[in-house]
């Protein structure tokens, strides 16, 4: 399968600050690729360069064979962008917003009218299309925001954290829309700091932190890279207790790694159920009361923790 997007050593600096440090990756035609990383990792800067909003400091990328630095206008015709923040006119209706943005992409006449109706149906807002956007709920606004990116049927859709700050029902609708678009053949570059979204949607995932792409592969490849480790989370009352507990659990047999985060001691182990009794008894020994326990299958959170020593939400 050919690559719709090829990124080569793409970098962006602001003075001495390096926001993106020379990342390289590709997205195949028809693929959903997630860029997973905490806030400030460089996800939005990467999308801004790929969508031709900012010129990279160095490196380049090609989309559908067009360089983002040499031929930005050609790139813009084949990409769709759903920005992280809503970019809509609140005093226009949903239909008027879509019509305006359709015009910006060179659509017009009866074809635009039909396409606007189609997109309204696609994002589930046909009956609300003639109401002003300012009357919409947050989730509905997000859906119009996505609809704008779909109007001209782009080959590659950039979605920058499209589910931030919305209710679970709208979030579910957005994730289903992404899957539906992909089924229709659209390639998607999806950025998120929600591990579950990346796991659910992606064919492949790139993990980005401090402007560097620190891991790249399918979910299976990434979890396998850390040895299929399970995560055992021991929740305690305060961070100081979590630190004492983590120190006590370091030497426990079968424990590969111990970290602390948010009132938790987090153990990476090949078999969490086997380690659990010993961990609880160790906590009793040092008089720390465990409030709750979570066991997680190998996942991206564990991968991120293993690679950076921090949780995704830190």
């Amino acid at each position: 399968m050919s690559d719709i997007l090829e990124v080569h050593n793409l970098a962006k600096s602001y003075g001495d600050f390096k926001a993106v440090k020379g990342i390289t990756f590709g997205i195949a035609d028809g693929e959903i690729f997630s860029l997973l990383g905490p806030n400030g990792a460089g996800k939005t800067t990467t999308i801004s360069m790929l969508s031709t909003l900012f010129a990279p400091t160095s490196g380049d990328a090609s989309i559908g064979g067009h360089s983002v630095t040499q031929d930005p206008m050609a790139v813009r015709r084949i990409i769709g962008v759903v920005p992280q923040d809503l970019a809509l006119y609140e005093d226009l209706t949903g239909r008027e917003n879509l019509t305006f943005w359709g015009n910006m992409y060179g659509l017009g006449g009866a074809a635009l009218k039909a396409r606007v109706s189609e997109v309204l149906e696609q994002v589930g807002l046909t009956d609300k299309g003639n109401q002003r956007v300012k009357t919409y709920s947050g989730g509905m606004k997000r859906r119009v925001n996505i609809g704008v990116g779909l109007l001209h049927k782009p080959r590659l859709l950039f979605m920058d954290e499209p589910t931030v700050g919305i209710d679970p029902q709208s979030r579910r609708a957005i994730l289903d829309t992404v899957k539906d678009l992909n089924r229709q053949g659209m390639s998607v570059l999806y950025t998120t700091h929600y591990m579950e979204e990346a796991q659910e949607l992606s064919h492949r995932i790139g993990i980005i932190d401090h402007g560097e792409l620190i891991a790249l592969g399918s979910l299976q490849e990434l979890t396998r890279s850390i040895g299929e480790l399970e995560t055992l989370r021991l929740h305690v009352a305060e961070d100081a207790e979590a630190a004492r507990l983590a120190a006590a659990l370091q030497s426990l047999p079968g424990v590969t790694r111990v970290d602390t985060t948010d009132h938790q001691a987090v153990l990476m182990t090949p078999d969490a159920e086997e380690v659990l009794p010993a961990a609880v008894s160790k906590a009793n020994e040092i008089s720390i009361k465990i409030r709750s326990i979570d066991i997680e299958e190998p996942n991206l959170e564990a991968v991120f923790l293993n690679l950076t020593g921090r949780a995704l939400r830190d």
Binding site: M73, R76, V81, P83, D85, L86, A87, W101, M104, V148
Partner: peptide, 14 residues
């Protein structure tokens, strides 16, 4: 400030 200018700039509009 609202991001609509950026959105116009990444459309095929000069």
């Amino acid at each position: 400030d609202n991001g609509t200018l950026a959105r116009m700039l990444i459309s095929p509009t000069g």
